[in-house]
Design a protein around this nucleic acid. Structure first.
Lengths: 136, 136
DNA sequence: GTAGTTGCAAAGGCTTTGCACGACG
DNA sequence: CGTCGTGCAAAGCCTTTGCAACTAC
């Protein structure tokens, strides 16, 4: 009755990609993952990286983020949490505050939708950029 | 001290574009706006539409949305509110529940960022798609 | 053995941009 | 009249895809 889960093979490429996302807490883009994994697997292709990111997020092993300013990013932290994007340098970081489940009930009531989840992005300026800005 | 506001000219293209966004509550994409405005101004180009959307959102006359699934959308409703995207048909609608300002304070505390705003997207299934699904 | 995967390269979708002409103020 | 805006077309960026060879199970 549920979604047909296709069985994933454990390939070297897949392992390195998953590993690389887990290793970094900086929510890398597909291209960043590609460049890093290529240090270990020089023959991997960008297409493979994209295909794996698709499959891995489809099966819930990574989370795909689409912050306002640009390309997709990937997050290995699976527990519910929010994100913040620095509007100056573009970095994306976790915001570890508890998810507000009540928001979804409110939204369901207000819209008539069946709500499955929500995504919350804060925008702001990171401490480093703030310091740089203060120093002119 | 504030951002240098450049003065906008009132061109027919700009007027029709702004008008078209205001007229529809469906958060049209750039291409949808283009196709609609072209009925009145057949010689307008897609490039002009994009340039105006850029300028208009830069000056706060429209709001630019970037829902997870695909291209930018535009919203003429300027008061703070949230959005929901139907994961089946892709439509985007307003969610008129009050913004939670306390979220930003929490996020600032948790991250050290200076928070300027936040974007909240709900995902779910709209009543129409739900009905269609129930009817097999 | 055979489905799922990979590399490579080409194609695709959306958005941005260079340029010369046009029009708003 | 000087800018700012426009149309057109080309370029750009990120992502997806077709295909034949390959490999995990």
């Amino acid at each position: 009755m549920a979604a047909p889960v296709k069985k994933l093979r454990v390939t070297r490429q897949r392992q390195f990609i998953l590993d690389e996302i887990g290793r970094s807490s900086e929510h890398p883009t597909a291209d960043e993952i590609y460049r890093r994994v290529r240090r270990k697997l020089p023959r991997i292709s960008l297409g493979t990286v994209y295909r794996n990111l698709e499959v891995l997020s489809e099966s819930g092993l990574v989370r795909r983020l689409t912050p306002g300013g640009g390309q997709m990013r990937f997050d290995a932290r699976l527990s519910p949490h929010y994100h913040v994007r620095c509007t100056v340098c573009g970095r994306v970081e976790d915001v570890l505050v508890p998810e507000r489940a009540d928001l979804e009930q409110e939204a369901a009531r207000a819209t008539g939708y069946e709500i499955d989840g929500h995504t919350l992005f804060f925008e702001g300026i990171c401490p480093q950029c703030r310091a740089r800005r203060a120093a002119h």
